[in-house]
Amino acid sequence: MLSRWVTVAYLAYLGLPIALLFTGSFGDLWLNTLLPTGATFRWYREVAADPSFRRAFSTSLSVAVATSVACLAVGLPLAYAVYRTQSAKLRAAARVLYQLPVALPPLVLAFGFILVFSSDTLPWLGSIWLLIAGHIVLCLPYFLQTVVADMQRLGLRALEDAAESLGSSAPQRFMHIVVPALRHSVLSGLIVVTALSIGEFQFSNLVSGFLNRTYPVVLLQAFYGATGFACAATVILLLLALAASFSAAYSARGAARASVAGA
């Protein structure tokens, strides 16, 4: 009984600010009242028409997609190398190294980037490529975590050995065994990466240039203006993040089902 009330209270605590954001985004006027007055779509129209928001939205999407592609291209071979390493020490060291960004505040990484890339030899601060590079460092650990765990659960090594003994060549093993067996965890890893990249603020706020600010960075500016406008802009980010999380959860369930088959 108590646990039910705790749950309800927690959900209210979690949901109320979001519900207020929704209400505010459709409210015409919201000054010194508990709830806004009047109903309108104009805040959404204004956000959609705002050039800096349009720009930020497409920057965020490009950065998220580029980060995901890079995580796939770098992360899958890296995960495979970590999984296949014979030496337990090397494996542990690799794990500590790639988990480091999880423990470090993104702020630290940002200061590091600012120091290194505002120098005369490497004057790249403010470019979108630097932004993407930082997002890769921040997101890759979560991708590796998901994929390496799935490789271990499946016993990928034994599956590959079996395929090899049955006459399968290296490219065939990759296409017939590795990719299909890992498809669920790779997909859910990628969606987690996308969601993290879209929502990232600390690092992007310090490192992005004026012309390629990401959506959360621009969003902060909105709170200095009209409340309804800020709410609408936030709701858009929220929907984007929710969409990514739901598809991540969905594909994670698929991965769990597939790994039961491997047990």
Binding site: L154, A158, L159, D161, A162, E164, G167, S169, A261
Partner: peptide, 16 residues
Amino acid sequence: RERQCGIVFQSYALFP
């Protein structure tokens, strides 16, 4: 892969 040995692994190693 060219030796043509049929192997039954301890963990079975069936493709899930």
